[in-house]
Amino acid sequence: MSFAEDVKNELCQFKTDDAWAAKVEASCLLRMGGSILLGMQGRVGVRLVTANNAVARRVLAIIKEQYDLPTSVLIRKGLNLRKKNMYTLTVEPTEPSRLALEELQLWPVDAMIPDEWLKDLESRRAFLRGAFLGSGSVNKPQSDYHLEFMTTKEDFADQIIRVLKMFRLHGRKVERKEEFVVYLKEGDAVTSCLQIMGAQSALMNFENVRIMKDVRNTINRQVNCETANLQKTVNAAVRQLDAIRIIEKHQDLDTLPVRLYEAALLRKEFPDGSLQELVDAYEATYKRELTKSGIGHRLRKLEAIALQWEPNGLDIE
């Protein structure tokens, strides 16, 4: 089972005593995933086809509790072992069904959810929960952070963005194959949306994996940084040793200025030592203080002298 299915199953277990919020949730769910049925003499019904049994039971329970409409559920088995069962929930076209759909702002088909429905926090949460159950998806936390709502109606996509903004979440919209997708990409935004909708267990799972990913990425960055620094140290040491060998071909090292002579001897004694290690060795040998910048300056002087003897003798980065 996918992580998105786990989230939907958990949301379907979310309990609320707010009857109005339940209607908002059902309205958004059916708006995202349902289709209108037209009957005789102006009768109207609705049908929802879903592969998630929990979603079908969720919307059926809300309709039964709030309206007590004539409904039926058809289960169609998958064609092979990999195909999931499909659940078709039908609210038959009747006059009471039409009145219920009008109240849910699902009929007429161009009706929008009024802004006054979203005055309180629970209704806004129910709005997002219903939209996600109807046609939402979220990546497993081990992959890229991505949560999305998909709808065929651009005005409803814009309304989802406005509701997200009420929670300080900045959804983005893109058109994909004649559908409009509202998505969140940042990890903080995805976890906040899960919490708002009511998927607490999925949120904890997401956060645990996210923490492990962040720790692993931090360690990898540190290792890469240290590896790069070590490589720079090695390259510099090799270049400095080449400079000293060039100088030795053309003059005795003891003819160099004292400070440069001391630096050359230290580098030869510690061919792979870092600047700090050379400083420590210098202070222990000569009983004088020296800084890393000081020893680095002397080694660069040796390179400059070597280039005077052999202008192409060093591999300068």
Rank of each mutant, 00 (worst) to 15 (best):
K185G: 09
V55N: 00
L266T: 12
A306Q: 13
V223K: 10
G296C: 05
T255G: 12
R125T: 04
D188M: 01
D68K: 05
Q222T: 11
N220W: 02
Y261F: 15
L128V: 08
A4C: 10
G42K: 01
L121Q: 04
V258R: 11
W309R: 06
E226Q: 07
K287N: 15
A306M: 13
L48E: 09
E317K: 14
Q251Y: 06
T291D: 14
E317G: 08
E303P: 06
V209S: 01
L118K: 06
V49C: 08
A19M: 01
C28E: 09
D280L: 14
E122F: 01
M197C: 10
K119V: 05
K177Y: 09
L253D: 02
V7C: 06
L230W: 02
E310A: 04
P96A: 00
M150E: 13
R168N: 15
P311N: 10
N229T: 03
Q200S: 10
P96D: 02
L314E: 12
Q222W: 10
K249G: 04
D315V: 15
W107S: 11
G42P: 08
A56I: 03
G273Q: 15
D214R: 13
D252W: 01
K287I: 07
K268W: 12
G45W: 08
Q159T: 11
V44Q: 07
R168G: 05
I219P: 00
N312I: 01
Q195M: 04
E154D: 09
R172D: 09
D18M: 09
I196F: 05
E65G: 12
T191M: 13
A111P: 00
A51I: 03
L101F: 15
A237E: 00
F156C: 02
A284P: 11
Y286D: 14
D252C: 03
Q105K: 06
L48Y: 14
Q200F: 08
A100L: 00
I295Y: 09
F270M: 15
T90W: 10
R168I: 05
Q231S: 02
L164T: 13
N220M: 09
E289V: 04
S201Q: 08
G171A: 06
G33P: 05
V174P: 00
Y286I: 13
E207L: 14
V174F: 00
Q159Y: 06
L275A: 15
G78Q: 07
E269T: 15
F127C: 02
L266F: 14
A56H: 11
R162N: 09
K77C: 02
T50M: 05
K213Y: 03
V46P: 04
G134E: 00
L99M: 03
V73N: 07
I305R: 14
E103L: 05
A22D: 11
C193S: 09
L99A: 08
E317Q: 12
L60S: 14
H250N: 08
E289M: 09
T152H: 13
T16V: 12
L37P: 07
L266H: 13
A131Y: 05
L230P: 00
M212P: 00
T94K: 04
V190W: 04
W117Y: 13
H170R: 13
K15A: 13
D158A: 06
E179W: 03
M166L: 10
T291H: 14
V49T: 09
N139S: 11
